[in-house]
C-alpha cells in the first residue's frame, strides 16, 4: 500500500453534493460550556464523542459548531470557508459496514467505478464527519475509527490498497445514546478512550421553554407548559419506555399549536402516539396532557 496525501487524493474525491451547505447559523442555546470545550478540542483536532438521549440537541450542536468553525469569520480560515460541505453526517445502522463509510466499486454501464464513501470525502476535503449512533454500526467500522482517531490520522482504503492521510482540518465526531443499549452493543474501552466526551441531556425547564418558544413560535407560557409536560413524561423514562419525550417532539407539538391545532390534540399526535404503543402508557400521558392543557 502506498501512502498518498491530500493533494493526490483530490483526484479521487468526488463531491456528491455540489451546492454549498450551512449558509445560515442554526439556533442553539448552550447549556453549559460545551461550545468552549468543543472549540478547544477542535483546535487540538481531538475527536469528540457526544453522549445523550435522542432529540436533546446533539445534531443541532454539531451543526452549530460546524457553522462556527467553517463559516464564522473569527474561527474559519480561508480553507475552511472553501469547503462546500463542512459537515458530513452519517446515520449509522445495523448493517452499516466499513465499505459503506469508505466507498466501493460500482458497475456503471460498461465500467467499474470507485465511489467514495462519506468518510473518505470528509477525510479528503477536510470537513467534519459526524457518525450518529455509532454503536449500531457493524464492528468492522472500528478499524476505521481507530485509525483516524489516534495520532496517525490515516484512513486505510483496503479495497484500493491505499492509505489516505487525513486533511489537517478533518475532525471525527461520534454520538451515541448510552441509555438503552444492550450489553452486547456497547463501545469498547479502546474506542471510547480515543475521544473527548461531552454529555448531553434534556435542557432544564427554563432553557427548554426558550428553545421551544423559539423553534415553534408559540407563546412563552404555552412553551412553559410543554416543557413541564416534557419533565413529567421523562419521569416515566425508566419505567415503561426507554426514552422520555425528546425536545424535538415538544417543538413539533408547539409548531402544531402555533398553526392553530388545539393544544390537547397537538400533544396527542405529536407526543402521546409517537413515544409508545402501549395503551396504558398512552392513556397516562394523555391524562397528563389533559392536566396541563385546558
Amino acid at each position: 500500500m502506498s501512502g498518498m496525501d491530500a493533494s493526490d487524493t483530490a483526484r479521487f474525491a468526488a463531491p456528491a453534493v455540489a451546492t454549498p451547505t450551512l449558509e445560515q447559523a442554526p439556533y442553539y442555546l448552550p447549556m453549559a460550556d460545551e461550545v468552549e470545550v468543543f472549540l478547544a478540542a477542535y483546535a487540538a483536532r481531538l475527536p469528540v464523542l457526544l453522549k445523550g438521549p435522542t432529540g436533546c440537541g446533539k445534531t443541532r450542536f454539531v451543526e452549530y459548531m460546524a457553522y462556527l468553525l467553517y463559516r464564522q469569520p473569527e474561527y474559519a480560515t480561508a480553507e475552511h470557508l472553501a469547503v462546500t460541505n463542512p459537515l458530513i453526517t452519517v446515520a449509522c445502522h445495523e448493517d452499516l459496514s466499513a465499505s459503506d463509510l469508505v466507498g466501493r466499486y460500482l458497475l456503471a454501464g460498461e465500467e467499474t467505478v470507485w465511489i467514495d464513501g462519506p468518510l473518505t470525502r470528509a477525510v479528503c476535503t477536510g470537513a467534519m464527519c459526524y457518525l450518529d449512533e455509532i454503536v449500531e454500526a457493524r464492528k468492522d467500522t472500528t478499524v476505521l475509527i481507530h485509525a483516524l482517531t489516534d495520532h496517525r490520522r490515516i484512513l486505510p482504503v483496503e479495497k484500493r490498497s491505499i492509505i489516505l492521510n487525513a486533511h489537517a482540518n478533518f475532525l471525527l465526531v461520534l454520538s451515541y445514546n448510552p441509555g438503552y443499549q444492550s450489553v452486547l452493543k456497547d463501545l469498547k474501552p479502546s474506542t471510547r478512550q480515543r475521544f473527548v466526551s461531552l454529555e448531553f441531556d434534556y435542557p432544564p425547564h427554563d432553557a427548554e421553554t426558550r428553545i421551544i418558544a423559539h423553534e415553534s413560535g408559540v407563546d412563552l407560557d404555552v412553551a412553559a407548559d410543554l416543557a413541564t409536560l416534557g419533565v413529567k413524561v421523562r419521569h416515566l423514562r425508566h419505567h415503561s419506555f426507554e426514552e422520555g419525550v425528546s425536545t424535538r417532539l415538544l417543538v413539533y407539538a408547539g409548531q402544531l399549536i402555533a398553526r392553530g391545532i388545539e393544544a390537547r390534540r397537538a400533544c396527542d399526535v405529536a407526543i402521546c402516539r409517537a413515544i409508545t404503543d402501549d395503551a396504558d402508557v398512552q392513556r397516562a400521558v394523555a391524562e397528563l396532557v389533559a392536566t396541563l392543557f385546558p
Partner: peptide, 8 residues
Amino acid sequence: LYTEALLG
C-alpha cells in the same frame, strides 16, 4: 403511570 410521572 400518572402518579409516577407527576411525582418523578
